[in-house]
Amino acid sequence: MLHLLLMENLGYWKEEHFFFCTLWTGYLGWQWRRVRTIQEEINELKKQVKTTPVTPEGKPVEGEAAPSSAVELKIQQLTEERKELLKGSYRDRHYNAGSILLGFGVLEAVGGGLNTWIRTGKLFPGPHLFAGTAITVLWALSAALVPSMQKGSESARSLHIAFNTLNVLLFISQLPTGFEILMRVFEFTQWP
């Protein structure tokens, strides 16, 4: 019985780790999104840049040479920012962290239910169980959107973000209920 109590205790702490891993994975995804959106901003700004007339030799026409415009400076700034973000390999890191979260998260969700069933012979329907089930389903739905996102679907990206935002909110609601369950397990445990 003590080893099952330890499993329950570790389960609560694993939930916190999954929560922080979810936040970290979201941060990496946000940075990867920033890489893509910066390029879109740069492209829009390039459309605003006025071309300077040049002579056949490629020199600016007299009186037309002007210092870099604010738009060109912004393009340069965003280009440098994008280069720095690209060094972070956020796309690969987000994908890897998401894959690990999905794999171990589903394993933990199923394992947590099995642990409760083994210890008590039943499951306890309530906010914790329902939130955990919803989190697991949202992980799967979010991962299922990846192929569409890789093909450039903005609606798939928006759904991916919405599912994972909802996941974070469900995790926030689940942490206190997990702590309550842990305290009940301690209360009803017969110590050797």
Rank of each mutant, 00 (worst) to 15 (best):
V168I: 15
I42E: 11
N115V: 09
L101W: 14
P56Y: 03
G103P: 12
V185T: 09
W13A: 08
P127M: 00
A156R: 06
G112F: 09
T120W: 09
L28P: 02
K59L: 03
G178R: 05
L114V: 14
H17R: 07
K46L: 13
G58K: 08
G29Y: 07
S142L: 07
A140K: 06
M1Y: 02
G111F: 15
L86P: 04
M7H: 00
T189H: 15
G58R: 08
Y90I: 08
F19D: 09
F130T: 01
Q150G: 04
A143N: 11
I118E: 01
W117R: 07
F130A: 01
Q150A: 12
G111A: 15
T116L: 08
T37Q: 10
T133Q: 10
W13F: 14
N43K: 07
L141K: 12
A134G: 12
F163W: 01
P147W: 10
V146F: 09
P147H: 10
V185L: 04
L28F: 08
P53E: 01
A131G: 01
E180G: 04
E72S: 13
Q150Y: 02
V168H: 02
W117M: 10
T52I: 13
S158Y: 07
K74V: 11
S69K: 10
M149T: 05
V137E: 12
Q31I: 15
G126C: 02
P67L: 10
G11T: 10
T177D: 08
K83H: 12
K14E: 11
H94T: 14
L123K: 01
T133I: 14
L175P: 07
H3Y: 03
Y95N: 12
K151S: 07
V54N: 07
E8Y: 00
V168T: 13
F124P: 00
G98M: 12
T55I: 02
F19Q: 09
H128D: 01
F179L: 10
K74H: 10
A134I: 11
K87E: 15
E154N: 10
S89P: 00
L170W: 02
P192Q: 09
I161S: 05
Q174K: 05
F20Q: 07
L145I: 02
E81I: 14
E44F: 08
L159N: 03
R93V: 09
L5K: 06
Y95W: 14
Q48V: 00
A156E: 09
Q31A: 14
R33Q: 08
N115Q: 09
R34W: 04
F19L: 09
R184W: 01
L4S: 05
T116M: 05
A109Y: 15
G121W: 08
E44A: 11
L114F: 14
G58E: 11
R119M: 13
I38A: 08
S99L: 15
N115H: 03
P56C: 01
T116C: 04
R157F: 12
W191R: 08
G11E: 02
F19T: 02
V49P: 03
L141W: 14
K47V: 03
W24P: 00
H3W: 07
L73V: 07
P176Y: 11
G132L: 10
E44N: 09
W13E: 04
G58Y: 03
Q48E: 13
N96M: 11
A109M: 15
M183Y: 09
L170I: 07
L102Y: 13
I181H: 04
N164I: 04
